[in-house]
Nucleic acid binder design. Structure first.
Lengths: 211, 211
DNA sequence: TGTACATCAGTGAACGCGCGTTCACTGATGTAC
DNA sequence: TGTACATCAGTGAACGCGCGTTCACTGATGTAC
């Protein structure tokens, strides 16, 4: 399906109208199909129904396009994680579980975003904007970790940053090994259940009460 | 550095002598430099100092070469993990720590192998040999998990497979997010320490005694 | 030990292809008056 | 409301390049006798 202005019958005029957005959609579509390495600038132009020179009006090169995709990915990721966390309602632990599920759901439903963000080899400091977006997304996890740690007596509270990194590594590990269609290995349980059990055991190890 | 027969001054004759091995080394070198997507069949031939048609005598195509690289990667990985585990000596827990460190060391020292194995998008069932090698490597982790679980009273022993998958996902998560030179994010501690703490908390959650 | 021959591994030239990138251009849109 | 003009976004043709792949070939190696 091509993106065309107004969703009409492809009868766009000389001007596309929203080529930048269309190119980003094209990149997502193509990454989902063939992996982050499997798409070219020319491909994206073709997909958007435009001459191969047109993308240069909007992106310096393929990398800039990819990094824009990653940026939007982080923004959407943050949005979803924030929504799932919902300020820790009704209780931190329940919200935490939702957070994990949201993480995996994102990796599964938006594999192209996920690839661009974590596997395409785009350095986070490709742009300050990108880094900021990545930090904001991680910030949600960190905030959640803090809320959970608040349940512990102050004396044996590990650093929230560390706990957030642990949670993230578990989620990313599960997501990238088992969480997508083309997972390398068949599992005796769903990736969601596997992650939930893992986090549960970890939290018990931290001494979070009521688990 | 080119691979040449006998390590001499490049004065190989018409026959290379060991082109297959040289191509695999070339692939590793090139993957390490430019990522798994960043090398071509022609590149590998050039690196080995051979005409672009020569590789076809040894590999059907680029994918077959890559999958051979992955196979050797899994074999080396298994070798290292087995050595680190050392049959659980002197005690399962100490051996388990070594296993984690060996995992990260492999990802750091052999990033090209690691990429080919886990990130190049080669399906594990590209060949029965590859799957078997992957299974053997995972088998080491599983065996270690079993040894640890044996320390628990039989009544609350979770499935060893699940625990092995958890350990693997933590290791892979840390390795791929923070474990290599071009890590996305700077850490306040080493990847090794981060993983060790994570596994420790997890094992405490399992109730492994003495932790 | 020597010779003839089969097999093997690498050559080098050639091909078609798609990519990235550039360029002067042109059609469409918006704005000043 | 209409007209002139500036700006913008996409065109299409062109280029050089490196890749994958094929082919008949040839130099080197191993083996039978």
């Amino acid at each position: 399906m091509r993106w065309t202005k107004g969703g009409g019958h492809g009868s766009r005029g000389y001007h596309h109208g929203n080529l930048k957005e269309a190119l980003i959609r094209a990149a997502l579509e193509l990454i989902a199909e063939k992996g982050p390495a499997g798409f070219t600038f020319a491909d994206a132009a073709r997909w958007a129904g435009v001459s191969p020179a047109a993308p240069y009006r909007h992106f310096r090169d393929r990398d800039e396009l990819l990094s824009d995709v990653a940026l939007r990915g982080f923004e959407e990721f943050e949005r979803r994680l924030t929504k799932a966390w919902d300020e820790g309602r009704p209780a931190p632990f329940a919200a935490f579980e939702r957070l994990g599920k949201a993480y995996l759901a994102f990796a599964r439903e938006e594999p192209a975003f996920y690839s661009a963000m974590f596997e395409a080899g785009i350095p986070l400091d490709a742009s300050a904007e990108l880094r900021a977006a990545g930090d904001r997304a991680f910030g949600v996890v960190r905030m959640a970790a803090e809320a959970l740690l608040a349940l512990l007596p102050a004396a044996n509270r590990p650093p929230a940053l560390m706990v957030a990194l642990h949670i993230w590594s578990m989620s990313h590990g599960i997501a990238s090994l088992f969480g997508r269609e083309n997972a390398q290995r068949k599992l005796p349980m769903s990736a969601e259940d596997l992650l939930e059990a893992e986090v549960l055991i970890y939290l018990r190890g931290l001494g979070v009460p009521g688990i």
